Amino acid sequence: NLYNGRHAPGEHVRVFPLSNWTELDVWQYIAREHIALPEIYFAHEREVFSRHGMWLTAGGWGGPAEDETVQKRRVRYRTVGDMSCTGAVDSDADTTGKVIAEIAVSRRTERGATRADDKLSEAAMEDRKREGYF
């Protein structure tokens, strides 16, 4: 029901079958199908520092700054990406079931909770594209 059938001969059609799935839909599918995931998606004690309201991992990419303190916290990653722009969230969810329960009551989207670029400016991702990041 999402397919737009109006295209001219020779035009390419891109299909994104999961584009209307929520983060909760994805995790429920993972549980139902018993899909194994890397440990980074589950809560562990990790060394992180706070920047713009999210927990980032220290690294050669530019963090932490002099006024940012590294500390151990129990966090997990709701998405996995470049460490300079992907934040962790405080969490005790160390199983798929606990992740599902956590997401079900969360009022912050994955993007809102973990995308550092979105905290910097509305055009941060476009800036990265222009700089050759992608």
Rank of each mutant, 00 (worst) to 15 (best):
T109A: 11
A36G: 02
D90N: 11
I30F: 07
R51G: 02
G10Y: 07
R128F: 03
G60N: 12
G59S: 11
K119V: 02
A124C: 00
M54Q: 13
A101C: 05
A116G: 13
E110F: 10
Y29D: 04
H12K: 08
E131L: 01
F42G: 02
N1G: 14
S19W: 01
W27F: 12
D90L: 14
A104F: 08
I40V: 15
L18F: 15
L120M: 08
V75T: 14
A124Y: 03
G53T: 15
V75C: 10
E122L: 00
R46H: 04
E45I: 04
Y29V: 05
A43Y: 01
R14G: 15
R128L: 02
G112D: 12
E47P: 08
G5M: 03
T69I: 09
A104D: 13
E66D: 07
T96I: 13
R32M: 03
V26W: 04
L56Q: 05
E110N: 08
K98E: 14
V70G: 06
R130T: 15
V105L: 07
S106D: 14
E126V: 15
S19I: 08
Y3S: 14
V70C: 15
D94R: 01
Y133F: 09
R74E: 00
K129A: 09
I40F: 07
N4R: 11
